[in-house]
């Protein structure tokens, strides 16, 4: 009898404590539902309908999705961001990795300066970054103009064949330092004992890099690759701002994200844009998932 009485307050406290964690998390979850889950559900809902000038809104099932898959403008944009992804992301991450390894080797002067100098571009708003590089690309008073003057050439970044490279350069410039810092932090986390063991074995720097450092950063590289994939497929700010500089070179469907934006805000085709957004979300998630699986399998080897 007395034991039951003694038990109850303890249980009440336990239940209350089980709920405290929830109370801490609830404010975040409420806003999260409002700005993530609700729009997501709304997008799916929208994508299943079609609005016509005559006849109003009607349920069309998967029609919008079928139409997106048959839309050459969608494929052109997707092809462009895929190309961008395959070239820009490896270049940027290779540069970030080299810089991280160099800084981690501690074999140079001014490490603090280099670390902060490389990270600074991350803090620059994308609008300002595009404006700066856009001006520098310009032939009138930009750096490219100067170079052409010195070399007697008439090279132009703001041309059909070089524009994507120019955009890739801006993105690389903005995010290289950020990725460098992430890779550098995981290099820092390597246990000193591993280096001591390597020194005892007489391993050279090259072997230490290959056998200790590269495996150690693999997890971080997978994370960086995933974030870069998401970033590439979402490519919007840079081409959208650049478009005003070179309106005839950047179409309204230059990237899928620009296409979705222009469809819904100037084309009034909200339902179609919703289907496009969902397809891009699924494509991104699937690729990110595959990269993660492969990355983890490699890490287990």
């Amino acid at each position: 009898m007395s034991s039951v009485v003694a038990e109850r307050p303890g249980q009440v406290r336990k239940v209350r404590r089980r709920l405290t964690g929830l109370w801490f998390t609830v404010p975040f979850l409420l806003v999260f539902v409002f700005v993530f889950i609700a729009p997501l559900a709304y997008t799916i809902w929208l994508s299943l309908f079609q609005t016509k000038l005559i006849g109003g809104t009607s349920f069309v099932g998967a029609d919008n999705f079928v139409a997106v898959f048959q839309d050459p403008k969608f494929w052109e944009g997707l092809g462009r961001v895929s190309l961008f992804l395959l070239v820009q992301v490896p270049v940027m991450l290779a540069m970030a990795l080299v810089a991280a390894l160099v800084i981690d080797s501690a074999r140079l002067h001014g490490i603090r300066f280099f670390r902060i100098a490389m990270f600074l571009p991350y803090a620059v708003p994308s609008v300002a970054a595009v404006l700066m590089w856009g001006f520098m690309y310009g032939e009138r008073f930009g750096l490219v103009g100067n170079l052409n003057g010195w070399l007697g050439t008439d090279f132009s970044v703001l041309s059909q064949q070089w524009l994507l490279v120019g955009i890739g350069n801006i993105v690389t410039w903005s995010f290289m330092g950020y990725n460098m810092l992430i890779l550098y932090s995981s290099l820092k986390a390597i246990s000193p004992e591993l280096y001591e063991a390597a020194a005892l074995d007489g391993a050279g720097q090259l072997r230490i890099v290959r056998n200790i450092k590269l495996p150690a950063v693999q997890g971080s590289i997978v994370v960086a690759v995933i974030f870069s994939i998401i970033g590439s497929f979402q490519l919007f700010n840079e081409p959208n701002i650049m478009q005003k500089l070179v309106p005839n070179l950047i179409s309204t469907y230059y990237t899928p994200n620009m296409y979705a934006y222009n469809l819904s805000f100037t084309g009034q085709q909200v339902n179609y844009a919703a289907a496009l957004a969902i397809i891009m979300g699924v494509v991104t998630a699937v690729i990110a998932y595959v990269v993660q699986l492969r990355g983890n399998r490699e890490a287990l080897k």
Partner: peptide, 19 residues
């Protein structure tokens, strides 16, 4: 939450606007 990290924020922008 982990799934949400992978969702492109911009994919939600248009529906968020409509909402």
């Amino acid at each position: 939450i982990l799934g949400a990290i992978a969702i492109p924020g911009t994919a939600l922008a248009v529906p968020t606007f409509l909402m």
